[in-house]
Each structure stands twice: as structure tokens, then as C-alpha cells.
Amino acid sequence: METQRRPGGRSARVRDAVRQATLVEVTERGYEGLTVENVAKRSGVHKTSIYRRWGSPEGLVADALELAAEEPIPVPDTGTLAGDLRALTEALRAGFASPHGSAVGCAFIVAGMQHPAAAAAMQNFTAARRKQSVVVVERAVARGELPGTVDANELIRFALAPIYYRLFVTHEPVAPEDAAKAADAALAAARAGIL
């Protein structure tokens, strides 16, 4: 007889405790300071259990990203695509402007740049977030604001890319007006048939 895993239970509590400890550790110490030992102390889970299940700090980050990808994000519904895109870009800007959001986001991106497992988890995470966000484009097409030929994924990428560029390439601050410009430029490209 095959034993079935119960949803939730001890395994889910352990995973949640380790994930929460990982997030606190990367917030306080950054990715470079993330260690299995510190996560074990903070989570109350023995380090051998963490090594067995997650293997390394990269595994911890990859798992935290996997869990975060499953979480829903608030998708704006302002009634116009311009308003929705501006709300999405502002949410990204504001998230990275907060100390917690900046520390966690930067840690995930750094890990993704250095380790294949974290990179794959980061790709899945961004794909999941983009999948939730394209709803604003689909609604705009249904309202007749854009033709059905627009590539919704590309439109979302175009709106968010300038913010990531400023944050991680040029290390410039991102003001609310910068986020609004990114949204407006992506919408203009879509309306021009570029996307």
C-alpha cells in the first residue's frame, strides 16, 4: 500500500520556517551572508536536515523563490491600460524602495546570476509574476484599447525593464515619475504596433 503525503503537516511547517528564516537572513545579511548554519539557528530546524533537503544557500534561495512564485500578487484594475501599467511599474519601484523588498529582491537576483538552480527558480518566479500581470493587457484588448495581436508578455517586459535597468545596471534611484515613464513608453510601443 502506497503512503500518501498529507498536505501541510510537519513538512510544510519545516519548509515555511526555513523559508521565513531565509528571508530574514537575506534581509539582514544579504545573499553573501546567507549560511545554512544561520538559517538553522533562526528556523529551529537542524542544519543536517537543511543540508539534506536544500543542500546550500543557493538551494534555500531557489526554494524561497519557488514558494514566492506560487503567491498571488495584487493585479491592478484601474479601468485603463495606462493606469494599470503605471500601477504595476509603481508597485515594482516601491517594492525595491523598501528595505526588506530591496534586500530580498537583490539577494534573489544575485543568487540567480551566480548559481544555476537559483537562476532557474528566478526564471520561473518572473514567468509566474508576468503570467499574473498579463491580465491587465488581456482586459485592455477586451475593452478595445489594443489589438488582439499585441504580445502581452512583451508589453509587461517592456514596462518593467527600465526599472530593473536603473536598479541593477546603472544603480540609479527610481522615482515614481520614472516608473510612470516606463509604463507610458511600453504602452506607446504597443499602440505603435512594435509589440
Rank of each mutant, 00 (worst) to 15 (best):
Q132R: 09
E90P: 01
E25Q: 11
N38R: 15
A189Y: 14
L34Q: 02
V39S: 04
A159P: 13
A97F: 00
L67Y: 12
R10T: 14
L167K: 10
Q20L: 12
G79W: 11
R13Q: 15
G83Q: 06
Q114S: 11
A152M: 05
T3H: 13
T170D: 05
D184R: 12
T126A: 03
R93L: 07
A175D: 13
G59S: 10
T48A: 12
R157H: 12
L88E: 14
P176A: 13
G193I: 05
A180C: 10
Q123L: 01
M113E: 13
A128I: 09
R13A: 14
G112T: 07
G8Q: 13
K41Q: 07
F125V: 08
R10P: 00
A17Q: 14
V110C: 01
C106A: 09
S98H: 11
L81F: 06
G30V: 03
Y164V: 09
A97V: 00
Y31R: 11
A107T: 07
A12Y: 06
A179K: 10
C106E: 10
L88K: 07
A17D: 13
A127C: 01
P176Y: 09
R86G: 13
A117L: 14
A94E: 15
L155V: 15
K41I: 03
V134W: 00
N153A: 13
F168R: 14
V61P: 03
G83N: 04
D63Q: 11
V18L: 07
A186M: 13
P7N: 10
R86L: 06
D184Y: 00
I109W: 09
V18I: 10
E28W: 01
M1C: 00
T80M: 06
E28Q: 14
A107Q: 03
E145V: 12
R29G: 04
L195D: 10
A183R: 07
A185S: 08
P76K: 01
A159N: 13
A17H: 09
Y51A: 06
A64G: 13
L67D: 11
V174W: 02
